[in-house]
């Protein structure tokens, strides 16, 4: 019960904090809308208007990943700046559990991106919003968000030890967009990139959403999201403990 209370309190608290950041909110809605607009015009100009919902979903997922990435990247660093990182580390629950709800809230905020691109596409470009499997879509969306949030937790654990990891994490934005095939099929990527795609929750997330919206098997990608989510929990529990120990041993925890 106390675990659920920690998760819920942290989730609500971080959601409120993110809600006060106009930068975070605008970035999570503005950037995907910009990319969606470019993708819409590119597909329209290429004579592929039937793929606009495909592009809207992809651009929305780009926003979900960006929000997760920046939120997770900033999570530890913001705590450091505010002087609350030590309190989080010293709290009785494990560090991974303390920061899990923060990461989930970051990914949840990313859903604004998907909403923004779908609404933008509908109003400005007349993209039809007929979902092939609406109930499965409603299931795939939170599953994707949770899986991305858990991946963000793994990333966040590295920031306990490396203060520059925040800057390095920004580098992961475009490569993951590409390797996950968010706005195009990964079939056009070189074959050696396939294993990279398979290891990424955004790849399975966009497959699940795309299939739920346009038709296709949803349970397979959902299963993979579950597997990767569990793997992320195990990895982050280990890395948080390891990096926390190293940061304490080197006395670098609060160094900015």
């Amino acid at each position: 019960m106390s675990v659920l209370r920690v998760v819920w309190s942290g989730f609500v608290m971080n959601l409120k904090m993110l809600g006060t950041s106009s930068f975070f909110l605008l970035t999570s809605t503005l950037q995907p809308v910009i990319f969606a607009t470019i993708a819409f015009y590119m597909f329209k100009s290429g004579g592929r208007t039937g793929t606009l919902l495909y592009a809207a979903l992809g651009a929305g997922m780009m926003g979900v990943w960006s929000t997760t990435l920046f939120g997770s990247g900033g999570m530890i660093q913001w705590q450091r700046w505010q002087g609350t990182l030590e309190l989080g580390v010293a709290a009785p629950p494990s560090m991974a559990l303390v920061y899990l709800p923060f990461s989930l809230a970051n990914a949840f905020t990313g859903m604004y991106s998907l909403a923004a691109t779908l609404i933008w596409g509908r109003i400005v470009f007349g993209v039809p919003l007929h979902l092939a499997h609406p109930w499965l879509f409603a299931l795939a969306l939170p599953a994707t968000v949770v899986a991305l949030g858990l991946m963000g937790l793994v990333l966040a654990s590295t920031f306990v030890l490396y203060r520059y990891a925040n800057a390095l994490s920004n580098l992961l934005e475009y490569p993951v967009w590409i390797a996950s095939g968010l706005v195009f099929s990964t079939a056009i990527l070189p074959t050696w990139t396939r294993p990279i795609s398979w290891a990424l929750p955004p790849y399975w997330g966009i497959l699940a959403l795309r299939h739920a919206a346009l038709g296709g098997g949803v349970w397979g990608p959902l299963g993979m999201l579950l597997v990767l989510g569990v793997a992320s929990i195990v990895i982050s529990a280990y890395t948080f403990r390891l990096f926390e120990h190293l940061a304490r041993a080197r006395a670098t925890l609060s160094l900015t």
């Binding site: 597909f43 520059y164 580098l171 475009y174 706005v183 195009f184």
Partner: peptide, 27 residues
């Protein structure tokens, strides 16, 4: 070193992203 990485990695991947979208869009 990190500044350098950010400076060169991001633009190359931006080019790749749009080139792949362009291929998918057949533009």
């Amino acid at each position: 070193s990190i500044f350098f990485l950010i400076l060169v990695v991001q633009p190359v991947f931006q080019i790749l992203l749009f080139a792949f979208i362009g291929r998918a869009a057949n533009l």
